[in-house]
């Protein structure tokens, strides 16, 4: 017993292995706050400050102009068409890749990622080359009254190309992790392939799908490069919100430009809030949660 010494008072405080000294901690926190402030919060605040520089009335008046109204309408329409289509294609691609074994699978996954690595401007040019008036397909389509380039179909194509990976990329890891056993079980219980998809596959990926759709939507509304090339930026007709903002800004109409930018930022913020709510409630079913 004598070799056990009892120390009185507070136990010595040990630093855990992953803990840094207070100085280092504060320095790193300060760097993070500074970076975030300069790169994210300051610009966001600046957009709203500029938008309201001449008062709320001036800002609202600029949003009430026909061009601004048409731009908002066009952007929402583009998103409303391209996001559901990409959701369907994304689900189909992810389902195909994860539920079947075939040669060239890795290549196909790489191909799905292509829009992330190709500059949107290049993508836009490709669409112009393929469907422009001087191309074989485009010439025929224009002659028959269905122009693609400098019209809505071109903008939708460009937007879909750029946002294609979001849904598939979100779903593939989730579906790989879930495996095929539940689908196989449903088949042995007598369900048809179609029924298995609606009652087993889709419910299992619903939150990941919604998450991918939100990311896709945010990008679809904000896409500039590819859309700028294919749309021709015809005011009141093919000018989306991002391209209209750019044109207004070039014309020194800063209140109008920033007011529209503020609306776009608000749309993005709403998307972000929904996305965060999903992450909090259904983190276990999201691929994003596994990646971080």
């Amino acid at each position: 017993m004598s070799d056990i010494t009892v120390t009185k008072g507070a136990p010595p405080r040990f630093r855990s292995a992953t803990e840094e000294s207070p100085l280092a901690r504060w320095a790193m926190i300060a760097a993070a706050v500074l970076g975030l402030g300069i790169l994210v919060f300051a610009p966001l605040i600046a957009v709203f400050v500029e938008a309201l520089a001449q008062g709320v009335a001036a800002s609202l008046a600029s949003l009430a102009t026909r061009d601004a109204q048409e731009a908002i309408k066009l952007t929402l329409t583009i998103a409303a068409i391209s996001v559901p289509l990409n959701a369907i294609f994304g689900v189909a691609a992810a389902w195909f890749i994860t539920k079947f074994d075939f040669r060239g699978k890795a290549f196909l996954i790489t191909l799905i990622d292509l829009p992330f690595s190709v500059s949107p401007v290049v993508a836009g040019l490709c669409i112009v080359l393929m469907f422009g008036t001087n191309s074989l397909v485009g010439g025929w389509l224009v002659a028959n009254g269905y122009p693609i380039v400098f019209a809505m179909p071109g903008i939708i194509l460009a937007t879909m190309f750029v946002t294609f990976p979001f849904v598939a990329r979100e779903l593939i890891p989730v579906m790989i992790e879930q495996g095929r056993a539940e689908e196989e079980a449903a088949l042995t219980l007598g369900a048809s392939g179609w029924r298995v998809f609606w009652t087993v596959t889709l419910p299992n990926i619903r939150w990941a799908l919604l998450y991918g759709v939100l990311l896709c939507n945010a990008r679809a509304m904000g896409e500039f490069g590819a859309v700028a090339v294919v749309s021709g930026k015809i005011r009141g007709q093919t000018a989306t919100m991002p391209t209209t903002i750019e044109m207004l800004y070039q014309e020194y109409l800063s209140v109008a430009a920033f007011s529209l930018a503020a609306v776009l930022a608000l749309l993005a913020l709403v998307t972000l809030l929904l996305k965060t709510a999903l992450e909090i409630r259904h983190a276990d079913q999201l691929a994003a949660a596994h990646r971080h």
């Binding site: 369900a191 048809s192 299992n204």
Partner: peptide, 19 residues
Amino acid sequence: SVQDRRAGFVFQSYALFRH
């Protein structure tokens, strides 16, 4: 076909429908 066999199959990880 797997549906027409009417084989009651119990999977290794049970594969219960989680939702």
